[in-house]
Amino acid sequence: MNEQAALMRDSVKEFAKQYLVDKATTIEREGIGKDTLAAILNQGFIGSNLPESKGGAGLDKLSHSVLIFELARVSPSVAMHVLLQNDLVLPLLESKPELIKGILSGEFPGVYINPMMDGFIKPENDHLLKGVIGSSSKYAIAIHSDGKVYLDYGKSEIDNDSKPLGMRGLGTCNFNVEKSEVLGEKDLADHLLLVSSLDIASIFLGISQGALDLAMEYTKVRKTFEHPLKDYEPVSFRLSELMSELEIMKSALFSDSIEEIMMLMLKNQAASFSRKVTRYALQFHGGYGYLEDFGVEKFYRDSVALNAMIYRPTVDKRFLATKLYSDKSGFL
C-alpha cells in the first residue's frame, strides 16, 4: 500500500471510531443522520476522487478503495452512500457543474439503477420510480427502462411502508418524475459500473472484514461447554480459512497496481465471499447474532442486498469469460 493510501486508511479508521462505531446501529434504524452526513462532507469524502480542478481531492484509485473498505467495515450504508456519489452520480453529472457544486455541499440526489441490474422486470412506465435510493430529493439519477441514463426532476415521497433488506441507512423513496433529460446512453452506465469494480470489491471486502472482526471478538469471549468458542476446531479453523481468503483478496485490492481484468475478478470473488463470510459470522454468534444490537446481522443482510443492488453477475461473468477465452463466450 502506498503512502497516500496508508494515510487514508489511518484517517478513515479514526473517523469511523469518532463518528460511526457507536452510531452504526442507529444508522441502521434511523438512517444516516444529518450530523453524520455533515461529518462525511467535512472530511472531504464526497467527491474525494474528483480532480482538484473540479472541487475534489484528486484521490488515486487505491486510496479511494481504502476509503470505501474502511467505511464498509463499520457501516456499509455509509460506504455505499460515498460510493454511489463518487462512482456513479458525480461522473454522470460531469456536464452539470451547478449540481456537482450542490452535491459537494450536501444536496444528494436519489439514485435509481434498478432496470440495469440482474433480475429486474422492467417497469411499465418511467414516471414513477419505486425504490429510489435516498430518503428525499428534488432530482434523481435514474436508468430508465430503455437503458439510458436520465436526470429526472420531480417530487419524492419517503417510502414508510417497507423496510429494505439492506443498506437501511440510505433509506428509499418513490420518485414522481415531472421532467427528464438524457445524460447518456446505456453504455455509459455499463461503463461506470465496470470501472467501479475495484470500489465495489472494496465494499464487499469491507463488509467481510467487519463481520470477521465481530466474529473473532465474540468467539474469544463466548464460552460453551466451559471453553471459549475459539477453542473448537469447527469455529477457529473456519474463521482462519475465511481470514486467509480475505487477506489474499486484500493483498490484490491494496496492491499499488492492479490490472482492469483483475479488478473484475476480484469483484466477482468478493461478492460471493461476502455472503459466505457474513453467514458464518452470524452463525458463530448463535442466537445473539440474530439480534440487531450485536451488529453482525446487518453485514449478512447488506452483503446479500448489495449483490442485488449494484452487482451484475451475468453481465460481469460474460465480460470475464470473453476476456479469458479471447472470444465471445457465455452467449448461446
Binding site: 441490474m117 440482474d118 433480475g119 422486470i121 453467514r279 446479500v304 442486498a305 449483490n307 442485488a308
Partner: peptide
C-alpha cells in the same frame, strides 16, 4: 433463500 436472492436480484429484495 440465499440462492433465490442471487437468482432474483432486484426483484428478490423488493
Amino acid at each position: 433463500a440465499e440462492t433465490a436472492m442471487e437468482i432474483t436480484g432486484q426483484t428478490g429484495i423488493s
